[in-house]
Structure formats: C-alpha cells, structure tokens
Design a binder for these strands. Structure first.
Length: 437
RNA sequence: GGUGAAAUGGCCGAGUGGUUUAAGGCGCUCCUCUGCUAAGGGAGUAUGUUUAUACAUCGAGGGUUCGAAUCCCUCUUUCACCGCCA
C-alpha cells in the first residue's frame, strides 16, 4: 500500500526538483485531487457522525412507546446512508486517480547527478585496468561458441523463439563458475545469501518502481490454470523479490545495514531493444544476475552506494577485466533511483564499453512503498535502499571469452575461477568436454 | 485438486445485531508498598486521517440494516485430513 502522506509531503516539498526530472509532471492536478480527496473525506465523516447519533437514539428508545419517532428517524438515516454511499464512490475514484499520479512520479535525483537527456551527459568517474593489445584477430563469443557447438541459438529458437540461449559443456561450466565465484565473494563480504521466487505478484513491481511506467519490459503470466490465481509475473531482477521481503516490516536499528545477495534468472520482455550491443548473449529475454541489496540508515546511503559499487568492481579487478565507472545522468537513471553508477567493461570486439552492473541508491522511494522503517529516538525513519548488480553473469561470460583469448579461439580461464572449473584451465579447440553431438 | 475448520490489538483470547466506546489474561512502561528474592497495589499501553469532546480500522472487498466484529456473497490466507507430486 502506498504511503500517501509521506509521498505527498515529498511532492509538495520537492515539486521543482521533480519537474527537473519529470517535465510533464502536473503539480496542479495532483494538488487539486488531494484537496478534493480531503474535502470529500470531511463530508463523509460529518455524515457518518450524524448517522451514528441517530442510530444511537433508536437504540435508546423503547420500541412500543416510540414507534412513530423510530420510523421517522429510520427514514432520515437511510437517506444519509445513500449519500454516504455516493460520496464514498467519489472518494474511491478520487483516491485511485491520486494514487495513479503519485505512482507515476520518479525518484528525485541527487544534487550531484548530471541533468541530461542522452548518454553524452553521463559522467565518467574513472577507469581501471589495461585494454589488451591482441596480435591476432579476437574471435567473438558467438563464433567461438558456435565453433565449439557450446553456444547455440538455433536450438533456443526451436525451444523458445528469439532472444534465448542454449549453453553447453565447458562454456556452461564457466557460466556456472562465474555465478558461484561472485556469490561466494559477496558472502565473504558479509552479504546474506537468499533464495527467492522467480514468479511474483504484480503489486510488488509498483513497490520497486518497474510499474506503472515500464510494463513493456515485464513478462506477465496468463491465467491458464488454477495455479495462477492472481496477477503474477516473472521477475525482471531479483531486486524485486529481495526488496519486497521487507513489506510492512519494522526493522531494528541494530540490524542495519542489512545486506542481501541472490543469484537468480531475470526475465525481460525488452520490447524496444534494437541497435547496439545486441549480439549473441548480450541482450536476451532470460539471463542470470547476481544482485546486491542493502538497507541502510539514510545518513549512510551515499557511502553504502559506493560500497555496493566497490563490491561489484572488486570482482572485475579479481577477474582482471578493464572497466570504467560512470555516473548516469537524470535521463538514464532507472525510475526509482536518486543516483546511479554504471560499471562498464571493455569489449575488444565491439571496441566500446559494455554495461555489466548498475548500482543505484533508491533513497526512500522503495522503503516508502514497501513500508519498512525503524525507530530512532521514537521517530519513524525510513531506510535508504541500495541495489546493484554484482554482476550480470552472461555478459561477464562474453567478456571473459573475448578478453582472455591467448590465441584465436583459445581462452585462458581467470585464476579465481579455477576452483569451480573441474580442473579445466583453458578452453581449447581440442578439449574433450563430454560433448554429446 | 477434494473435504472440513479457522482469521479479533505486541501475544493469547472472549465476543451470534444496539453501554464492545473490543471483556479477561500475558507481556511491556511508569508510580507505589515491601524488600534478600518472590510477591502485592495503582496508572498507562493499537493504528491511520491538515488533529478531531470527530471519523475509520476485528484477514480483504462488496451487500443487507436506522445500526454490523456479529447476518449474507465473493476473494485471500492459515490449519487439518485425503489425493497428486520432486
């Protein structure tokens, strides 16, 4: 349930800031709906009071002696009742409209977030690592996978249509190793591993900010059988499941920061995803991602955002993948974010940086909506919620296959992954990895 | 999937149409008495609303009624047994 009072407070306090990020925002309409809502509520309260008084009168009267009076009062009250019904209907439609307006307002951007409308306005914070010079022509992961018959898109089309993948053998093992390594690393950093549902109620998507704006990206489930009772969808990211674990929960300040990590599949309908970075495993309907979520004291959220980003960067450093950290401009941030850092890894094939992580501070946007808070000095305080990918597994697979070729088509597996690779240290043309075709 | 039972404050739990304006207990907070402890006495103790001697909230939403925690309908969840399955 939307915490209306808090949201409205923010709307009134920060209306100019909201307009910076959401130029179409109509403050007047929202304000008028709110006024109407309040006056209707007052009217209804007044009518109810009247009704209650009359009804009480009836209960105090002796029926036999006062039958005429009672009948009169009954008539009066039934008129009041009808009025209440009518006004309540108005109230509900007014409330619905007001909520729609509130749900459509994105988070307010932090003051140091660049205002802008395209990728050019993003700010590169820093770069790490060395782009390798290759003495041979690097083979793309698509070619390499096809040659080894370990990444197959023809088969996935057969099974599920476009934008899915089948991964087999050594590359499948590498894929699993990457996820395992990331998960274990974050656990070492005091994140609590959580297993969550991949199918969730649509209402959760409003809490985390994917709905109402981005319904095109969501796979909604149809009610074909009785197992699907309400409106359900596939998670676009485990952030949705993780954050919504805290619905209506009162936290203990001593338990902060709460740090969660999950490795889950993510499902994106991605309606309009044409253009760059579209090849092979890079943009699919189904992919896996290790997700980090932190609930922290509002005063510590900027530090926490940096920490989450560092947790993600640490993995890239260990894998020795050259990357850069980018501060996103207002236009590129997700709906719920107040500040976002993207982490992008160098791709020798595309000759550009490819996004592998997005770390956002959602400030109170999500905590208001899931209604989770703690008490400090007897006051309700809403924690800031930070999420970040740590990292997108499929894309890291691609970047390992393309960055670590020691000669065309032969890949040296990063050391940190060795313990998850069943003794395999290289992906070679002639390795025998239980191929079945 | 079938059948049956249930859902009331922080917790337990009473409550089948009108002093329920939610009894009683536990827990918690404050005061007090006694004091080594244990125990006793008193007061307080849900939330929301542009803050009201007001209104609303007894799983959710509708309905009946002058009046609903209470009656009716729909839904959700929980528990039990059976069926199916990993």
């Amino acid at each position: 349930m939307l915490n209306m009072k808090l949201l409205l407070n923010d709307v009134f306090l920060y209306k100019s800031k909201i307009k910076k990020r959401f130029p179409h925002f109509n403050y007047e309409i929202t304000w008028n709906l709110y006024k109407k809502y309040n006056s209707l509520k007052k009217e209804i309260n007044y009518l109810r009071k009247k009704r209650n008084v009359y009804s009480k009168n009836i209960s105090d009267l002796n029926i036999k002696d006062n039958i005429n009076i009672i009948l009169q009062v009954r008539k009066k009250v039934s008129l009041i009742r009808d009025k209440i019904k009518e006004k309540t209907q108005n109230l509900n439609s007014c409330l619905g409209k007001l909520q729609d307006k509130l749900y459509d307002i994105p988070n307010i951007a932090d003051c140091d977030v660049p205002i802008g409308s395209s990728d050019k306005d993003n700010k590169i914070i820093y770069k790490w690592g060395v782009k390798k010079n290759f003495s041979f022509k690097v083979m793309s992961h698509v070619k390499l996978g096809a040659k080894r018959r370990e990444i197959n898109f023809d088969e996935s089309v057969l099974l599920s249509g476009t934008k899915f993948s089948i991964i087999k053998g050594a590359i499948a093992c590498l894929y699993r190793a990457i996820g395992q390594y990331m998960l274990n690393t974050h656990i070492d950093n005091n994140y609590c591993e959580v297993y969550v549902p991949y199918i969730i109620k649509n209402s959760l998507l409003y809490n985390t900010g994917q709905l109402p704006r981005f319904s095109k990206d969501i796979f909604f489930l149809k009610k074909h059988n009785s197992a699907i009772k309400e409106n359900l969808s596939l998670i676009p990211t485990s952030e949705v499941s993780l954050v919504n674990l805290f619905q209506n929960k009162i936290l203990n300040i001593k338990d902060l920061p709460i740090k969660l990590v999950a490795n889950t599949p993510c499902f994106r309908a991605e309606a309009g995803s044409y253009g760059k970075n579209n090849r092979g495993l890079i943009r699919l309907h189904q992919f896996d991602k290790v997700e980090l979520v932190q609930l922290v004291h509002p005063k510590k959220s900027l530090i926490a955002l940096n920490n989450v980003t560092k947790n993600a960067e640490y993995i890239l450093k260990k894998l020795n993948l050259p990357y850069r950290k980018v501060l996103l401009c207002t236009h590129n941030m997700s709906f719920s974010a107040s500040k976002t850092y993207d982490i992008e890894v160098w791709s020798p094939i595309d000759n550009c940086y490819l996004e592998v992580s997005s770390c956002s501070n959602t400030s109170t946007f999500q905590s208001y909506r899931v209604n989770t808070f703690f008490y400090e000095d007897n006051k309700k305080v809403f924690p800031h919620i930070i999420n970040g990918s740590g990292l997108a597994i499929g894309r890291i697979l691609v970047l390992i296959l393309e960055n670590f070729q020691i000669e065309r088509g032969i890949v040296k597996i990063p050391k940190v992954l060795n313990r998850y690779m069943n003794g395999l240290k290289y992906i070679k043309h002639d390795d025998n990895n239980n191929k079945y075709v």
